[in-house]
Design a protein around this nucleic acid. Structure first.
Lengths: 156, 156
DNA sequence: TCTGAAAGTTTTCATCC
DNA sequence: GGATGAAAACTTTCAGA
C-alpha cells in the first residue's frame, strides 16, 4: 500500500474528519471545494491505505459514569526483548489500558488507565501493574481534570 | 441534562460504538438485540445528554505522515489559580497539544504533543513549553512506539 | 415509557462521462 | 474530478405492549 502523497485538499479533509466524521459527503465537499463523489473517493483511499484505521464515538470523561483516568509511568527491571514482550502482552490484554506508549527517558512505558472509579482503579492497577512481569517500579498519576482528550494527528 | 442510568443494552452499545461507530443501526441492533429504531433512539440520547461528544476518524500514528508523539510532564513554578489558568490557556491554544491532563503527584500536567517529525516537534515544543508561562520544569518523553491509542472509557 | 414497524427522506455507492 | 441512478441508510411517525 503506497502511502500516496497528500495534497492540500487531503490535509483539509483529514483535519475535518478527525474533528467530526459524522458529516455527509456533500457537507465535506462543500467545505473543501469538491464534489461528493470526489470526497468519497478520497476517504475510501484513506481507509484502503490504512491512514484512517477506524471511526469511533468519543465519550466525555467528565460526563461518563464517574470515569477515572490515571497515567502510569513504568520502568522495567530488565531490558531484554522478552521482558518487553511479556510486559506489553500483559498490559494490552487488559481493556482498561486505554493507551500504552513505549517512550524514551527514565521510564520505559507510559500507560493510561481508564476505570469507573477509585475502587475499580485499585483492582485494575493491582491486576495490570502489580502482577505484570518485569516491572522495576512505577508511578501513578491520577487525572484531576482531562482538559483535552483527542487522538488528532497533524498531517503536515 | 440528567445523566440517565444506563442499562445492560446501553453498556453494550457504548462499548460497540467506542470500538467502531461506522456500523449501521441495523447491525448494531442485531448485536445487542434491538430494532434499528430503538438503537437510534438510544444513540440520540447519548448525544443529547453529552455522554457521546463526537464521532471522529482515527488516524494510524504509524501510517500517518511520520507522526511523532511526545509526552511531556510539566511542573508549574506557582500554584496560584492564575498561574494554572494561564498555562492551560496557552497550551490549549495550540492544536499540536493532542491531550492535556491535570494530574496528581510530582508533576502538575501531562501533555501529549503530536507533530509530523522531529523538526516540527522542536518548534512546537519551543512555542508550547519554552514560552509557556509559569513552568518550573518539564520532561519530554519521545514515543518510540504507540502500542495502543484509544479514548475508550469503561461505562461500568 | 419504551419498543417495533412502516413510510418518506437523505446519503451513500457504483458506474458513467 | 464530476454527475447520475440504484441501493442502502437514516429519520420520522404511529400503533402496541
Amino acid at each position: 500500500m503506497p502511502p500516496q502523497p497528500l495534497d492540500d485538499l487531503d490535509h483539509h479533509l483529514l483535519a475535518l474528519l478527525q474533528q467530526d466524521s459524522g458529516k455527509t459527503l456533500a457537507a465535506l465537499g462543500e467545505l473543501v471545494g469538491l464534489s461528493p463523489s470526489a470526497v468519497q473517493r478520497r476517504i475510501t483511499r484513506y481507509r484502503e491505505t490504512g491512514l484512517i484505521t477506524r471511526t469511533v464515538a468519543v465519550l466525555d470523561p467528565r460526563t461518563a459514569t464517574d470515569a477515572l483516568l490515571a497515567i502510569c509511568a513504568v520502568t522495567l527491571d530488565r531490558e531484554s526483548v522478552e521482558a518487553h514482550e511479556e510486559f506489553r502482552a500483559h498490559l494490552l490484554a487488559n481493556p482498561h489500558v486505554q493507551q500504552l506508549y513505549n517512550v524514551t527517558g527514565d521510564h520505559d512505558y507510559i500507560a493510561v488507565l481508564a476505570t469507573t472509579g477509585i475502587g475499580q482503579h485499585r483492582s485494575v492497577a493491582d491486576e495490570v501493574l502489580k502482577s505484570a512481569p518485569n516491572i522495576r517500579r512505577y508511578t501513578t498519576m491520577v487525572v484531576l481534570d482531562p482538559l483535552r482528550t483527542t487522538l488528532t494527528l497533524p498531517t503536515r
